[in-house]
């Protein structure tokens, strides 16, 4: 007798069921039920934001090199569980070749972004030659908590491609997975949970964007929102509600199979530039300018 897997949510490093007790049936092409997925509620989202906020200080405080190692570790664990992801993709309707390609690309993307962890700062930071007698430099810093409504059309690749550039730069995130292809998201959460990624850095919900997108966009303790789908009404509503706390709002409706859609400019979308000034003089000497 085969043991079937229960797909739950991933919040704060744990795998709780939705607090609402609600579920939706995931069916395959033959209309057979594959799984009962958690239908996340607003309260689940709010719990996930609390977990993500709590994780910001620790994750952004890690050495960039250390973040790079953890992202590389994600690639290693994903590689080891490749077969499981391919099987889940097949179950959700992919062909064998496209399933294998998707998993391969997802692993490669982890390696790609792992390398960026300690490099984008040098490309996008600067020392600024101000005219006054000051030392002045600018560095990118994480925006904070980012929520994502992930690609609907892929189960693994879109999710991974959105999460990585966010966490590379020390942000934490809450992600709503594809509603119609949710299986890989929770299995990917298992990968994250065993990759030394601290609890709360990535939180994954399954459910319905129509129900949740306004809550994502209006949450006052979320710093940025990334929408990876093409529903114009939802794009507009998210952009409008984002104004409540001047949330950074981006649409990443991209073809994640394309190599051009992995790049450091996505990292920079959820970075803030901080500029620091300091006088170049002996403090207190005559003529020093403060």
């Amino acid at each position: 007798m085969e043991i079937l897997k229960t797909y739950k949510l991933f919040i704060g490093g744990a795998f709780p069921r939705t607090e609402s007790g609600r579920y939706y049936k995931l069916e395959n092409k033959q209309k057979q039920v594959i799984a009962n997925m958690c239908l996340s509620s607003r309260k689940d989202f709010r719990n996930a934001v609390v977990a993500a906020r709590k994780a910001v200080e620790g994750w952004s405080g890690r050495a960039a090199f250390n973040r790079g190692q953890i992202l590389y570790r994600i690639a290693e664990i994903l590689e080891g569980r490749k077969a499981q992801f391919v099987a889940e993709l097949l179950l959700q309707g992919s062909t064998k070749s496209s399933a294998e390609k998707e998993v391969r690309l997802a692993i490669d993307r982890c390696v790609y972004y792992s390398g960026w962890c300690d490099k984008y700062q040098q490309l996008f930071g600067s020392v600024n030659p101000v005219a006054t007698s000051h030392f002045n430099f600018s560095v990118p810093e994480p925006t904070g908590v980012v929520c994502v409504i992930a690609d609907e059309n892929t189960s693994l690749l879109g999710l991974v491609s959105a999460i990585l550039p966010i966490i590379v730069g020390g942000n934490t995130c809450v992600v709503l997975a594809s509603e119609s292809k949710p299986l890989c998201s929770i299995t990917f959460a298992e990968v994250l949970a065993t990759s030394d990624l601290a609890a709360g850095v990535v939180n994954i919900l399954t459910g319905n964007s129509k129900e949740l997108h306004t809550h994502f966009a209006s949450h006052m303790d979320v710093n940025a929102i990334i929408y990876c789908r093409e529903n114009a009404a939802e794009i507009k509503a998210i952009a409008e509600l984002s104004s409540m706390n001047v949330k950074r709002s981006f649409v990443w409706n991209k073809d994640w199979l394309k190599a051009e859609n992995e790049n450091p400019y996505l990292i920079m979308d959820v970075q803030e530039i901080k500029t620091t000034w300091h006088p170049i003089e002996n403090i207190g000497v005559s003529g020093a300018k403060y």
């Binding site: 000051h134 901080k274 500029t275 620091t276 000034w277 300091h278 006088p279 300018k289 403060y290």
Partner: peptide, 8 residues
């Protein structure tokens, strides 16, 4: 904060 002035 986007700009931090230290000792100025």
């Amino acid at each position: 904060a986007g700009v931090v002035w230290a000792n100025t």
